[in-house]
Design a protein around this nucleic acid. Structure first.
Lengths: 227, 227
DNA sequence: ACCTGAACACCGTTCAAGT
DNA sequence: ACCTGAACACCGTTCAAGT
């Protein structure tokens, strides 16, 4: 919670004598998380052909493990080339973040649980700050602007991930799943107005809708900043 | 997950013979969630002086219980008076949502887990749609605009709730907690640039910063929509 | 119609012990 | 230095049984 792996020296760089080390454990955890949406310490251990308790030699507890896993996926985010157009840069960065988060729905779920000060997360943050520094905004506005953009992106990606997870769990495509929901929801007595998502669905695929909306809102935000 | 309490007729309107009914169970769950940040079925039952298993007569499972609890807090959101100024209306609605979510951090945590089609949630949704309908935006843009605003608000409130929870758990004020984090984080080798939040902290309280940033970003978004 | 007891299949984690 | 076994204190939930 308040403690962070990154604030303790820890048993990070232990070498092995049975093929095990912290990196391997974290990598395996990420693999299982990607596959199942969650991990237990016990499942992780059996995957590694070892007793559950051996995990605790490399990692203080499950929270630490997840914090490490989270920074691992933060390392996958492609940072766009430096460019003079800060708005384009910010859009590209937001897109990159969204892309990798949607690829790891479990990550976005635990995003708020940790301080996110691992090396990869910090690399990302610094990149974002470098981009916004090229804008004409005041120092104070720059911070607000970054928060605004990434709070929006976080909200968007969270929502997007959920639909993808729903789809995966029910073994249907997202579009099919949305149809199912729409049909069920229509039966509920107090639902007289359909939600925006469901309403527009039939004209285009959810994926197209999402892409368009994502860029659109970013443009609004960026345009508003200069107004 | 994909199933929803609201899609099953369920044991909702059972009467009691030992003072128990679904409403009372849900109300108690909300009380415990507010107090501790989570509930177990077992703790809820003992709070109600009853065996864990009796819960399952009123509620199919824990997910259903939480879905009901979530709609209960959705009922606390104060819907602003109808007004011709749609931007003011949207801002007021966003503020109201933020206020009640920050009061129930557990709620925002499970917000994405359910379909949110309970009566109170739908009342909220319809109110939002009524407000945006008064804007000059096209039908399609109206849906995008609502999504954008509430995705941002969701991201903001999630972030805000986390800081408040951290503070509460460590028994410090949010400002003190931010100071603690800043001090610890400064020790981490790869942290060469401070994050926006931490950097500005000393000039004003976090609460002031948050209020200003929240309104600010909403203004940007709304301004961008008309550009 | 409502509630219980015993049980199942899980969790994360501590602690003392092995090599 | 690394790993294990047994145990503790939890979970949500099923199922058959009581009243």
């Amino acid at each position: 919670m308040v403690g962070s792996v990154w604030l303790t020296s820890g048993k990070g760089r232990k070498s092995r004598d049975s093929g095990l080390d912290r990196d391997k454990i974290v990598a395996t955890a990420v693999r299982l998380l990607d596959a199942q949406g969650d991990v237990s310490m016990r499942a992780l251990a059996t995957e590694l052909n070892v007793t559950p308790m051996s995990m605790y030699w490399y990692v203080a507890n499950k929270d630490d493990l997840l914090e490490l896993a989270l920074d691992t996926v933060a390392g996958e985010i492609e940072l766009p080339e430096a460019d003079d157009d800060w708005q384009a840069g910010l859009r590209a960065l937001a897109q990159a973040w969204r892309r990798t988060m949607v690829g790891h729905p479990w990550a976005i779920r635990c995003y708020g649980d940790y301080l996110n000060i691992g090396p990869n997360s910090m690399r990302f943050t610094q990149h974002a700050q470098a981009i916004i520094a090229r804008s004409p905004l005041s120092k104070a506005d720059q911070a607000s602007a970054l928060s605004a953009v990434f709070q929006y992106v976080y909200g968007f990606a969270t929502n997007e991930s959920r639909w993808l997870e729903y789809g995966r769990k029910t073994g249907r495509t997202v579009d099919e799943f949305v149809d199912d929901v729409a049909a069920s929801v229509a039966e509920v007595p107090w639902v007289s107005v359909r939600s925006g998502v469901v309403e527009q669905k039939h004209s285009q695929s959810m994926a197209e809708l999402r892409d368009r909306d994502f860029d659109r809102a970013l443009d609004w935000l960026l345009a508003g900043m200069l107004a």
